[in-house]
Simulated scan of single mutants.
Amino acid sequence: MRSVLFAAIFAIASFAAASAADAKGCIKGAIVGGVAGHYAGHHGVLGAAAGCLYGRHHAKMQMRQQQQPAQPTPPNRQQDRL
């Protein structure tokens, strides 16, 4: 139980210290990672840290995909041959 408490404190502290863009995904990842780490061998804080990093990475990737313009579809090569 103490590890989950530490994970929650870590998540709150990370949220307060990071900017809004950096914190996106961190809280959710820290909570999930903290709980998983707690049950996987009482490593809740380590799980929270890893979950936060993964959550931030995943949020950045989604943000980059949303910012990219849609790729035009290439023309059909068979129509060019006719």
Rank of each mutant, 00 (worst) to 15 (best):
A50C: 15
I31N: 02
A59Q: 06
H58M: 03
K28S: 14
H58V: 02
H58Y: 02
K60M: 07
I31A: 06
H58G: 00
A36S: 12
L53T: 02
H43P: 06
K60C: 03
Q67K: 02
G37R: 02
H38T: 15
V45Q: 06
A48K: 08
K60A: 08
K28F: 14
V45R: 06
G55P: 06
A48G: 11
G51S: 09
H43W: 13
A50F: 15
G51A: 10
A49Q: 04
M61R: 02
L53M: 14
A36E: 01
A36G: 07
G55K: 04
A59H: 03
A49W: 01
H38W: 05
L53V: 11
G44M: 08
K28E: 14
V32T: 14
K60I: 05
G44V: 07
C52E: 04
Q66I: 00
R64G: 00
K60T: 08
A36R: 10
H43A: 15
I31K: 00
Q62P: 00
V45S: 12
A49T: 12
K28I: 15
G37L: 10
I27K: 03
G47L: 07
Y54N: 04
G29F: 02
G29Q: 06
H42A: 15
V45M: 12
V45E: 05
G44D: 08
A49N: 08
R56S: 04
G34I: 13
Q67L: 03
I27A: 12
H42I: 12
V32N: 03
A48F: 12
K60Y: 02
V35P: 10
G37A: 09
A30I: 03
H43Q: 14
A40S: 14
M63I: 00
A59L: 04
A30D: 07
H43E: 12
I27M: 12
H57S: 13
G41C: 09
G41W: 01
G55Q: 10
A59D: 11
G29Y: 08
G47S: 09
R56Q: 02
V45A: 12
I27P: 05
K60L: 03
Q66E: 07
G44F: 06
V45Y: 10
L46A: 13
H43V: 11
H57N: 05
K28T: 13
H38P: 03
G47I: 10
Y39T: 14
Q67P: 02
R56G: 01
G47C: 11
Q65D: 07
G33M: 05
M63N: 03
Y39N: 07
H38M: 12
L46P: 03
L46R: 04
A36Y: 09
V32Q: 04
G55R: 05
V32I: 15
G51V: 13
G44R: 13
R64C: 00
C52V: 09
G29I: 11
A40I: 13
A40G: 15
M61V: 13
A36I: 11
K28N: 11
G55W: 00
K60R: 10
A30Y: 06
Y54G: 01
G33V: 07
G29D: 04
G47R: 07
G47Q: 06
G41Q: 05
A49G: 13
V32G: 06
H57P: 02
H58Q: 05
H57Y: 09
G47H: 09
A50S: 15
Q65G: 00
